[in-house]
């Protein structure tokens, strides 16, 4: 009987697992193997090159640029998204004038395709044309090419990411805030506790698991969210807004250097694995996954 159950279970699992292995586990492992081989070009077949692709990475200025940019991108998008999401959730959780409208305003960017978002912001940033520029013009400042200037390009695309994802994270904070018992707030009010003290002493510690959960997701997004780069900057000018995943795309599908792209992908997988392991150890999973 037990053995028969075993076979039935396998039958239920097989279709999903076969696809999962084919498009997640097998490519992950094969990518590691590919990274030790050279790219086949024309009649030249792929040969084993050991650590060559990785050695090249250490010498590659664009790779270094992409890693630094990605670190900056993560260092800004993660805290900014978390802070804004929390502010939004606090704004709309209680009774406030126009609550439905506010909620909609915060959440709407989340349902737009990032490609569409990129177009909207591209226009917004347009030198001497977009709304930013109009305001600068009124203030008597000279036009500025926000995404064409190496000093500002990375920050311009970073702002877009924050705009596109903060409302999404707001939802999780809203759910967390709902679980705080109203009796706590009533007690605090009787004690004459200020709004800020209540937040710092009660709300913030209670929603800490949610903050960690959101931070992990924001971290993954910081490495995965590059769609807008395609429309806005293509990693430029002069690699000023180059991010790791975009660089993988460029190496793999513009220069067709698949071996080097594989080595870059391995770096990406390692980063995500570290995030995953970190989540496993730091998050009390019982809190989220009841």
């Amino acid at each position: 009987m037990v053995r028969k159950d075993w076979l039935i279970a396998l039958a239920f699992l097989a279709p999903a697992l076969i696809l999962l292995f084919t498009f997640t586990h097998y490519p992950a492992v094969q990518t590691v193997i590919d990274s030790f081989w050279s790219t086949a070009r024309g009649r030249r077949p792929s040969v084993f090159v050991g650590w060559d692709n990785y050695a090249r990475m250490l010498q590659d200025d664009i790779f270094r640029r992409a890693m630094i940019n990605n670190a900056i991108y993560a260092a800004i998008t993660i805290p900014a998204s978390v802070a804004l999401a929390l502010a939004m959730a606090l704004f709309v959780q209680g009774r406030i004038l126009g609550r439905g409208f506010l909620r909609m305003a915060f959440f709407t960017p989340t349902v737009l395709p990032l490609i569409a978002v990129a177009n909207i912001w591209l226009f917004f940033y347009l030198p001497g044309f977009g709304l930013f520029e109009q305001v600068r013009g009124l203030a008597g400042l000279s036009p500025r090419n926000w995404i064409g200037d190496p000093d500002t390009a990375l920050y311009a695309v970073t702002a877009v990411t924050v705009w596109a994802q903060a409302g999404f994270f707001m939802i999780f904070y809203l759910a967390a805030l709902q679980t705080i018992p109203p009796s706590l707030r009533e007690a605090a009010e009787i004690e004459g506790c200020s709004r800020w003290t209540f937040f710092r002493r009660v709300t913030w510690p209670l929603i800490m698991p949610t903050t960690l959960f959101i931070s992990v997701n924001a971290t993954i997004n910081a490495f995965r969210t590059v769609d807008h780069i395609f429309v806005m900057t293509q990693g430029g000018p002069n690699n000023a807004s180059m991010l790791l995943l975009y660089y993988i795309y460029e190496q793999g599908f513009r220069f067709w250097d698949t071996a080097y792209a594989s080595a870059l992908t391995v770096v990406m997988v390692i980063i995500l694995a570290i995030v995953g392991i970190g989540q496993f150890f730091f998050l009390d999973r019982k809190v989220h996954y009841r």
Binding site: T24, P27, A28, R224, A261, S262, T265, V269, A273
Partner: peptide, 13 residues
């Protein structure tokens, strides 16, 4: 594992 290493990353392979 797929929650972390999504197919979105494994483009080349």
């Amino acid at each position: 594992v797929q929650l972390m290493v999504m197919p979105d990353i494994l483009l080349v392979r």
